[in-house]
Design a protein around this nucleic acid. Structure first.
Lengths: 345, 345
DNA sequence: CTGAAAGCGCTAACAC
DNA sequence: GTGTTAGCGCTTTCAG
């Protein structure tokens, strides 16, 4: 029967108008609920529109209004696991405003980034969210682009820009305080690569919490390595083989933390009984598969995405919110690896 | 100085025309490289366009051409780790055609899906890629939508639709054949939940490979559980505690496979020496952190995404490629967990 | 209350 | 070679 062969040009206001026996402007008013129309006329038009399955052409609307009801998502580093929760949060906030997301992934290549920026500009996006993994500072887009831009996770190098990211420094403080609160005193700090900004922030938080308690980290300093389970295992070995007592470890990622629990177990010690462990990321597949399951700092990425989108909406409305970096609080997902122990004081 | 205060209406052809002292159609021709123009005129126009940083309005172009140069990505289940590689592949293929991706995530909610479908239709997308986790069959969109649709990973229930997914059945065959080729004969098959289509396809492949070799799986049947490391550990315990010899395991996921390697180790056996293990997913964070690192079936998701996008491009050109399910070959990422062993005959 | 007409920014015929 | 004009689908004055 082929009732609806494909090249089926979309229905226009004109066709609806013809069917309803009115003018196109009446259709527009009826469909948009604007103007003064006799209720029965409005009904008749809407009926025709429904019968024809009329969908107003957003491109035409956009041409007229000067707005596309679209925002660009420019991911500057390769997509990582942080991207999905971020997108989910952003979609939440943007969807409410009938905005759609145009996705661009520049793979860290400046040429590609320029290309995407042109694409987004040509499509007249109403705003752009720039994301990148980790709280690294990146060059501002303000000279390259004419629409509001908000940076998410990654942070702009320009003080007048709006950036939204997680507060992993405070997250680290919370993590160490949690270890202290559950009775640990000999706390080791195991980070990723020393240069990484994530290591630095988390180290900073950990040191501040320790100092506030009048303590030093085990071995007197943090341990630096890579973002891997292997490094966690190695670090655990170094800790238990040292002559220093250890009863708590704060690790800069769940992968490291998981490696640490394994290292502990293989050294014949137990977590949380002998050593409490706290990680960062709340990456379920790691944290829950770990033995014991990991207590870990949740970076609240979905909220970062949601907030970034809302800040962008504000900027698009012409609002002038405070510029600078907005830090989203993290929270501690408590699992067994940090259960309180009764210590023989 | 505020050289470029924001509400900076985009430059139009008219402004370029004025500056270059020509008409707007000349600008159009110069910018698009069409028509017959004196080279110096063309140069002059392009020069003006550059000076004004002119970007042709894609919405206006789209209105005229009836095409938006945009495709919708409709993710029907929640975004999982499969989504990113898929998107990367799709972006690759679409970017070459100057197409952008509009992202929609329905979270498995039919209401949201309808909403997004309307949104995409209103935006006059040129086509839609529907994705979902796993090779589950899902209802066709053909009655709901007027543009070409290609299904990626998930498969349409309508035979005339185009679906692109991975061939995990053959992947399972390859995996088991690899275990056989490396000298194993007593091979256990450890799946996820019995109902899941992923378990079924992978089981099917495993059984076919075993039968072709005149073998049965250890215990005479596959083991079913969940998609977790815990289940892998439990399964390993069951296997080594059974009276049957086991020297190889094919697991339906990397998480299960990793659990199995741990179970093996904790039972005092070694992998690959005593038992070779092969998983599915090639999920780096799992496969490489496993001890030993996992040999695993890579589902080639990026290629699935790329191919789906290319099939969509074909359909958009009016091409009538073969309908039905196109299976993308998987490949085996060989790591240490399946290293060949010299068996005592 | 309803319709005619202008115009958003651009491209494509068709004149000149 | 270049400019004039019509029109993509829609919204919005402004007449009637």
């Amino acid at each position: 029967m082929e009732t609806s062969s494909r090249p089926n040009r979309p229905v226009t206001v004109a066709e609806v108008a013809a069917r309803a026996g009115v003018s196109i402007s009446t259709v527009s008013k009826a469909v948009n609920g604007t103007g003064q129309l006799r209720p029965e006329t409005r009904q008749r038009v809407l009926q025709s529109a429904r019968e024809l399955n009329f969908q107003p052409n957003q491109l035409a609307r956009g041409l007229l209004s000067g707005r596309s009801y679209t925002v660009g998502i420019l991911s500057t580093d390769d997509w990582g696991r942080f991207t999905l929760p971020l997108l989910a949060g952003a979609e939440d906030a943007l969807g409410a405003g009938q905005l759609s997301m145009l996705l661009c992934e520049s793979r860290g290549d400046p040429i590609r980034e320029q290309h995407y920026l042109r694409t987004l500009t040509a499509r007249r996006v109403d705003g752009i969210i720039v994301t990148g993994h980790s709280r690294n500072v990146r060059p501002s887009l303000r000279t390259a682009v004419n629409v509001p831009v908000v940076y998410a996770v990654t942070v702009s190098d320009h003080l007048d820009d709006v950036s939204v990211t997680y507060d992993d420094t405070t997250g680290a403080i919370d993590a160490v305080n949690h270890l202290l609160a559950t009775g640990r005193r000999d706390i080791a700090v195991v980070m990723g690569p020393e240069r990484h900004v994530a290591s630095q922030h988390r180290l900073d938080g950990a040191m501040r919490a320790l100092q506030a308690a009048g303590l030093q980290p085990v071995l007197g300093t943090a341990l630096f390595g890579e973002w891997s389970e292997r490094w966690g295992r190695d670090a655990a070995a170094r800790l238990v083989n040292s002559s220093h007592p250890v009863d708590g470890v704060f690790a800069a990622s769940d992968q490291i933390a998981r490696g640490i629990t394994e290292g502990i177990r293989e050294a014949g010690l137990r977590s949380p009984d002998d050593i409490g462990v706290v990680g960062v990321d709340n990456w379920n597949v790691i944290a829950e598969a770990s033995r014991p399951p990991l207590t870990t700092v949740d970076l609240n990425l979905e909220e970062v995405g949601r907030r970034a989108a809302n800040r962008l909406l504000e900027a698009m409305e012409g609002g002038r919110g405070p510029a600078g970096v907005e830090l989203i609080p993290t929270w501690l997902a408590v699992r067994q690896s940090s259960e309180a122990v009764l210590r023989p004081a």
